[in-house]
Amino acid sequence: MDKQTILQVYETMLTIRKFEEKALHLFEENKLRGSVHLSIGQEAVAAVVGAYLRDKDYITSTHRGHGHAIAKGARPDKAMAELMGRETGYCGGRGGSMHIADVEKGNLGANAIVGGGIPHANGAALSAQLRGTDQVAVSFFGDGAANEGIFHETLNIASIWKLPVIFICENNQYGMTTAVDSVTSVKDIAVRAAGYDMPGEVVDGNDVFAMEKAVKKAIKRAQDGEGPTLIEAKTYRWKGHWTGDPEVYRTRDEVEEWKTKCPIKRLEKHMQDKKILSLEQIEATHTKIDKLIDEAEEFALSSPDPDPATVLDNVYYEGDK
């Protein structure tokens, strides 16, 4: 990974982390309602993928999707406004945290049905193939989705049609409150790739360089017309499934141990060791992102609510094609 990309990945990870810490804070202050699923601890996966995709490439995301959106270029202010249901948010307050989309930027949307967005990435990849472009599509989903039928149907279709799609399973160890190993037939979800005759790779999802290697290989394979790849990124969410999760299903020790594998701290240490950024520059980056997130909060809080007179807008596309 070149220096510029390292810095980009680092800033993206920090933006995701601080965006979500802010969202949690605002939720606790009752300034934000609904479901807010945080990906704190998992930022490396989204940030690395985002760094290697172009604007014209596609992603589909999940209910835990703030990181994916930001990594694909979403502005924190418009994303925060959506979390607050404001008119200025990405979906004009119609979708909320679980449905942030920015189709023009290739983000085909977060999806609140587990596994619901996986085939949409297939379709975007099919579209690219039919149109003869070199675009690729990435589908992010969790370990829980790998037990949904739609995951299996989608991988089979992607394989038979050699679609330029990359399936990225963020295995954060729990489907809501249920440990992945108690409900999954295999230790590594990546081995399921074999059933669909595509490469499957287990990656340390908290290591940006391990992710880089796997993602680059999968993009090349997709663009070379060889078809899909399944990447299982082993990672961990530090926070509960939702804000307010009593977390009775895991121990504090387990959470603390995973915190020692923080992808951001790891990259900060690497950058200092390799003299890419000094401690002072790291601190300055934190300050810069803090400011960005504070501005996002301010933008969202000062944005108007949607006008109830517009509630029926956009049920249908109006007019001719």
Binding site: V103, P119, N122, G123, S127, N156
Partner: peptide, 23 residues
């Protein structure tokens, strides 16, 4: 004119992704 596997959810979802991206 694409024959699909017997996987209705899979090909509907694939169709949705294609429709979102210009097809």
């Amino acid at each position: 004119v694409r024959d699909t596997p017997i996987a209705e959810a899979g090909y509907v979802g694939t169709g949705i992704g294609a429709a979102l991206t210009g097809m």
